[in-house]
Nucleic acid binder design. Structure first.
Lengths: 333, 333
DNA sequence: GCAGGTCATCGAAGCGCTTCGACGCGAAGG
DNA sequence: CCTTCGCGTCGAAGCGCTTCGATGACCTGC
């Protein structure tokens, strides 16, 4: 059973190869009757265009690269949601997704771009001083970044507006009348890596708190139960008047609740807790967490859209910040 | 800056195009001096073979599809580890990975295979009666499954030996002198989906317990703290003599520990807990969990190896079961 | 010293597709 | 009635690579 080529379809439909091509691509007008005949032949023969040949002739592979940071400290569920939405959205644009890990580094990007394996690149978890950024600027292939490097000039970046997310949490706690609040962030290594989003959340939080005239404190937070417990205890000891806690660390969110329980503080009666995390985590916690969600799906969809627009030659905004949304649940009052 | 082609390299090195090709592929003997000259030109010009052209001419895309079940109820960290190891291993064989979601279904598989976008397929989370399995049998492209469908005849399947994993837990508890034990499994929907691994673990556990003459109980378990708490409480009420607990549910493992703490049972003094989960989860728990790890990396690596072997035309075993390994930590005695 | 055999290299024929220019034909315009 | 135009279709030229058969150059052995 040899694989069906466009020539087979052409013969079966009694037209030229080029006509079949035009029917399929819609790049030239074809009469309705011919179109139908060709389409029927395609169906009957079960024709699927050969991807390599198409890429070679059209200089478009219809594949985009997705570069994921498959390493420690990441927020897996969010990453997964993101990947899913990228794949799904890309398919809507008739593109496929090539999965790459960040540790292939700049060479890897260069390789897939230069070999025309992909038409464009989507990078996640960009760092403040990312060695891949200069390369991206040089590459002929368009790219979209999730997150912001130090200098986003000439790039296309998408992200949740983390500063606003931090601020939103502080605003919410201020509205509820809290006067002394704190933020527990990502593990220390995330800050050291300089990924940006963690800092921006802290900054947004602290600024907003200050604007409200509140006492605010922000510090990194590891992910094991014991360390979370210790951190919460320390915080409570140092700041007896503390009544509002923001957790920007998905793995730690559940542990914070556990620690407070053990330390004899009721949520939300004694301490209000607000998390910055995906909705499913917030809903599953007990009590359900008031949270600012990380709209992973939106980010993925938006990133693909921007990339597709760039592939069409359109110009797109350098920076797209997604508005955070606060959902009030049982953990704050 | 036009992209560099093999013809440019040939001209630069003063040889024929075919000679360059043979140098690069090693499929014919080339003198050391010529080889070096060509290699130098490749480096100087920064040549990268065009993937489409290569695929077209050689009928090998050097890309494999990875079909992931990006949906609820899955164990994300394990999935991620698995994906990482697949990508990394594939790169070692000079292959790239096309990411697909399971909800593209059989059509999707057919599409990427028929279009020669990929040379082979790796499917995760295969179900007992998976509609994609018949298609896989028909496909010219080789495939490897993670997990087992009802009838693995003619396929290539890799998985952790879950029956042995369950048995290993029972053995361990028997060795420690426990007489009454129970297993808390995956959420009910996982069993309903008939993915197989959950059942096999239960069966292995129950069989081994019976062999040891122990009283054993096995039931599904949801993932929220409240439901876990309720399940543990119920179990303890029904079976006052229960002293050993096996948890085959990564999300629930931490909650089980929390529930036992609240219910006033010390671990491991009153109840020994053994988890079937990745090492990092087990280590992060408090107390650290004795666990049988799910060797996601091994599975990924092994799956890619098998696929590569099939791509080379070798015949490989239909079924590869990876031996589970028990690591004793603080939660059992 | 020449047939026979290696070894290294070359040239050309595709691989399956897109795209460009050309062409025939009927309709519209003068 | 003849030109002009545009629509629908065709043929052919690549796209960049692999691979097969052919060709010398050189060595071996009798």
């Amino acid at each position: 059973m040899r694989t069906v080529t466009i020539a087979d379809v052409a013969k079966h439909a009694g037209v030229a190869v080029s006509t079949v091509s035009y029917v399929l691509s819609g790049k030239r007008a074809i009469s309705a009757t011919t179109r139908q005949r060709v389409l029927d032949s395609v169906r009957v023969l079960g024709y699927h265009p050969n991807a390599g040949a198409r890429a070679l002739a059209s200089k478009r592979a219809k594949v985009i690269a997705l570069v994921l940071p498959l390493r420690a400290g990441m927020n897996l569920p969010v990453l997964m949601q993101f990947a899913t939405s990228v794949v799904t959205t890309a398919r809507q644009y008739d593109h496929d997704v090539l999965l790459m890990t960040a540790d292939e580094g700049a060479d890897g990007l260069h390789r897939v771009a230069a070999s025309a394996l992909v038409d464009g690149l989507l990078l996640m978890d960009v760092e403040i001083h990312d060695p891949r950024v200069p390369l991206l600027r040089k590459l002929a292939e368009p790219s979209v970044l999730i997150g912001f490097p130090a200098d986003p000039e000439g790039l296309t970046c998408v992200d949740l507006d983390f500063a606003r997310a931090g601020a939103l949490c502080a605003d919410h706690l201020a509205d509820l009348g809290h006067r002394e609040i704190a933020l527990l962030g990502a593990p220390r290594v995330v800050y050291e890596r300089g990924t940006g989003f963690a800092e921006r959340t802290m900054a947004g939080f602290v600024d907003a708190a200050r604007r409200h005239g509140m006492e605010a404190d922000a510090r990194p937070c590891e992910e094991s139960f014991d360390e979370v417990h210790a951190a919460v205890k320390l915080l409570l000891d140092e700041r007896p008047g503390l009544s509002g806690l923001v957790v920007h660390n998905e793995a730690a969110a559940g542990h914070v609740l556990g620690a407070l329980r053990i330390l004899g503080r009721r949520v939300p009666e004694d301490v209000s807790v607000v998390a910055i995390c995906p909705d499913d985590i917030a809903e599953r916690a007990s009590p359900a967490l008031t949270s600012v969600l990380i709209p992973a799906e939106d980010v993925g969809r938006q990133a693909v859209r921007l990339l597709m627009a760039k592939l069409e030659g359109q110009t797109v905004p350098e920076s797209t910040l997604l508005e955070p949304r606060l959902t009030i649940r049982e953990s704050s009052r």
